[in-house]
Design a protein around this nucleic acid. Structure first.
Lengths: 205, 205
DNA sequence: GATTAAGTTGAGGGTGTCCTCAACTTCCTT
DNA sequence: AAGGAAGTTGAGGACACCCTCAACTTAATC
């Protein structure tokens, strides 16, 4: 399908992705492209040759994450306790956010909920539905509500990571307590529709 | 104390603050200074004359907010129901965030919790303490935990306002449900200390 | 090892923003 | 009404980043 790259080209591409990975993780997604090229030991022209659009490089760097999230969802489904499955899944995703500033920014504009992978979407739906059926997760919670978790934790991580890198867990625990069926009071607004969430993500390119 | 401004200078200053207020509200805090000057019908040099530091202009624009938040806290304390006081206070502050993109960004880096006004700080402490004493708010909740609310809602407003401007209320309701004493499960991390929160705010100048 | 397609290079032009400062204008005082 | 203090102006230098492209280099192929 895609033509095989020449040997040096492949090497340079890898160097670029590796350099970007490190810089993104440490400083977020808006590192200067010229710095990425320099770090990779490659010219700016080569970077543009491989990644004409800024987003192409971001996608290359975080390509694995989609799969990782799907794996986490699968693991969640393998647990006996549906609530534990849901919370451990969410916690793991948040750990990914907390460990990588770039991914945190990315997840915060395109919540993992909606990776277009058909499979990931379906897995996450099942994680949520199963937790509802078990009676632990409140009935009125939807998959799209998970975006609130991602958004909220993203901002907390961003603000507090320098001072208290783990304090987002406290924020998350408060959210979990609000998600329990036993805690449910009527919610004032209808949930985001799948299409609305998709629109939000499309919006922030 | 501060020397009185010349008439034209005062007028220009007001024009600048007014122009900045509008642009900040619509587009956030990183509007180009030259655009603010142009909108105010004033030269860039004049802007720098009145507001040597970028933050000076921001402070001038949002100076009233500190007082507004204090008023809201006072009103909260006047309500019979301590829980209603707390939630209505928080909801009002979030409405301020939702109504003004610039304030949303500002609150998200310097949560209103910590406006250095001695008075605001004390009022808010009482809003929280009173809700705890009434038995409605969970015992382990602290004033500093309110930062999670501000941070979380800030990001949700930012992401979703174009598509569903009111959907942050749903996010907030989930948080409220997690804050109730009846919902409380042990939290995994100690709260932010007042000094830590202050450090976070000092960090993002 | 010659040919050529594939890939690389980096100087340079474009853009947007910041900030300064020397010359100019306006207001206030007497 | 004159003088000086206060305030204004905007062209222009500094910077950081983006992106292109014509000349060059390297790898694959025969």
């Amino acid at each position: 399908m895609t033509k095989p790259l020449r040997k040096d080209a492949q090497r340079n591409r890898d160097l670029l992705v590796e350099a970007a990975r490190g810089l993104y993780a440490a400083r977020g997604l808006d590192v200067a492209l010229e710095e990425i090229a320099k770090t990779a030991g490659v010219s700016i022209g080569t970077l543009y040759n491989h990644f004409p659009q800024r987003a192409d490089l971001v996608n290359a760097v975080f390509a694995d994450r989609t799969e990782t999230v799907a794996k986490l969802a699968e693991h969640a489904l393998s647990l006996d306790d549906a609530w534990a499955g849901l919370t451990s899944f969410v916690e793991r995703v948040c750990e990914l956010q907390a460990a990588d500033r770039g991914y945190n920014e990315l997840a915060s504009t395109r919540p993992p909920q909606a990776e277009d992978l058909e499979r990931g979407y379906e897995l996450m739906t099942r994680v949520v539905e199963r937790a509802k059926e078990s009676g632990a997760l409140r009935e009125d919670f939807t998959l799209e509500d998970m975006a609130f978790v991602t958004w909220g934790i993203a901002r907390t991580v961003e603000a507090a990571s320098a001072v208290r890198p783990e304090v987002w867990r406290r924020h998350l625990a408060l959210l979990f307590d609000g998600m329990r069926a036993t805690a449910a009071n009527p919610l004032p607004e209808p949930p985001l529709l799948p299409g609305e969430l998709a629109g939000i993500m499309r919006g922030c390119d």
